[in-house]
């Protein structure tokens, strides 16, 4: 578990509109990489192209290469469904399935794919995933209750448990804390620190303190103006990005002098 991601000259389109241009990025296994940048600069678009969620939107497509441990994710014959089984995702707003209990939400990846499992194996998986998401102690007595009855922060950790239950190699997080209060945010950040033992994590965030706290590497995306494509300005160790970035634009952004 925990694989490397390499983007090589990646162009991402919505129809004929070039949204993100020429991304070259190497993400090392078992690290946390934060993507920062102003709204509309294409960080979420880039994130969604990593597990091929981008193409769910009609007309959306990708040019260039994106490799998971050297294997081209957009190669001919690669099934996007298979890609998504290896690269899990946590969304901005917590989205547990409203028709399912907490238990069923955790094993939704198996249940929805009708994968047969023995009862004790499922029980173990549910406990392991919920423990992995730091949620077990809070919900162990009400696993049969609906997931939508939990608080926002608990729901988000339930979604993380759901994502790690399918045992992916990579975990993508699209602003996972933007809908949460500071305490829930702290819980998720602690969790990210634990999860990087096993997973490669890529997190999009608007919160630069968060990027500084949780990530090993940081990539800064920027956009020159509306209608122009977003670009990866620079990527480096988080320490470097926040203390002595190479580019002027990065320095302006992380020091708050931007826009």
């Amino acid at each position: 578990m925990g694989k490397a991601i390499d983007a090589k000259n990646l162009n991402i389109y919505y129809g004929s509109f070039l949204a993100v241009e020429g991304v070259n990025m190497s993400i090392r296994p078992k690290t946390v990489t934060a993507l920062i940048g102003p709204s509309g600069c294409g960080k979420s678009t880039y994130l969604r192209s990593i597990n091929r969620m981008h193409e769910v939107i009609p007309g959306a497509r990708v040019e260039g290469r994106l490799e998971l441990d050297g294997q081209d994710l957009y190669g001919p014959g690669v099934d996007p469904v298979g890609v998504r089984r290896q690269i899990g995702m946590v969304f901005q707003r917590p989205n547990p399935f409203p028709t399912m209990s907490i238990y069923d939400n955790v094993i939704a990846g198996m249940r929805l794919n009708s994968r047969k499992m023995r009862k004790d194996a499922t029980d173990q998986l549910v406990e392991k995933s919920l423990r992995g998401a730091n949620l077990w102690n809070e919900v162990k007595d009400r696993l049969d209750k609906p997931g939508s009855g939990l608080s926002g922060g608990q729901q988000q950790r339930l979604c993380i448990a759901r994502a790690i239950a399918v045992q992916p190699d990579v975990l993508l997080m699209d602003e996972p804390c933007s809908a949460l209060d500071p305490i829930s945010t702290l819980a998720i950040e602690d969790l990210i620190n634990e999860l990087k033992m096993d997973y490669t994590i890529v997190i999009v965030t608007h919160n630069m303190q968060q990027a500084a706290r949780v990530s090993d590497y940081t990539g800064f995306f920027n956009i020159e103006g509306t209608g122009k494509p977003g670009k990866l300005v620079e990527m480096d160790e988080t320490k470097t990005i926040f203390s002595q970035p190479t580019e002027k634009a990065t320095e302006d952004y992380v020091s708050g002098r931007f826009g």
Binding site: N51, M53, V56, V81, G82, V83, R84, R85, Q86, G88, M89, F91, R93, N95, P96, F97, P98, T99, A108, G109, R111, L112, N113, S114, C159, R162, A163, V166
Partner: peptide, 27 residues
Amino acid sequence: VPNELREASFALGVPKWRTILKVVIPT
């Protein structure tokens, strides 16, 4: 049915037809 639920299902590696059958319609 919120699009987020469809995306949550897709992101778990569930094919579209199963997503419709097991997430969208039950919801």
